[in-house]
Design a protein around this nucleic acid. Structure first.
Lengths: 61, 61
DNA sequence: CCGTGGTGTCAAGTGCGCTTGACACCACGG
DNA sequence: CCGTGGTGTCAAGCGCACTTGACACCACGG
């Protein structure tokens, strides 16, 4: 997630506005404070041109 | 979602216990009252052997 | 030395995801 | 006729996803 963002030379704020959330939300997801909603996960994956599964390694148990 | 479930001959309650949520939660998702969390979406997709993107048509805008 | 951009984090508030518990309806088999 | 399984839905409550606003720290260029 942080890798995908920095690889593209984006700040947290840039990515936040690109997917329509606040900067703090992007930061919280990157540092692992909570998981994004399905909608936000979909927008982020779509923005990076990847599958949700490729961006987030949710453990399924 | 309902199609995937009924194709496998499962009740809402069966699927609910299979993915670890309540029956009402499965029902609410099927009737579109709200979207599942990323974790639950991942467990459901995994249970059906599909990608999250194949199970849920989240509109990305 | 100061300003600026990027980041980490806190506090307080809103709304949704999900819970338990309950009740009603329908279809079915006894 | 009654019981049972499957479904739809309500109410009240809990915790998380996400918000705005604020403050602090660090690195950098002027």
């Amino acid at each position: 997630m942080r890798r995908l963002r920095t690889e593209r030379g984006l700040s947290q704020g840039d990515l936040a506005t690109a997917v329509g959330v606040s900067r703090q939300t992007i930061n919280a997801i990157e540092v692992g404070r909570y998981d994004p909603s399905l909608g936000l996960a979909a927008r982020l994956a779509h923005y990076f041109g990847l599958l949700i599964e490729e961006v987030f390694h949710v453990d399924v148990d």
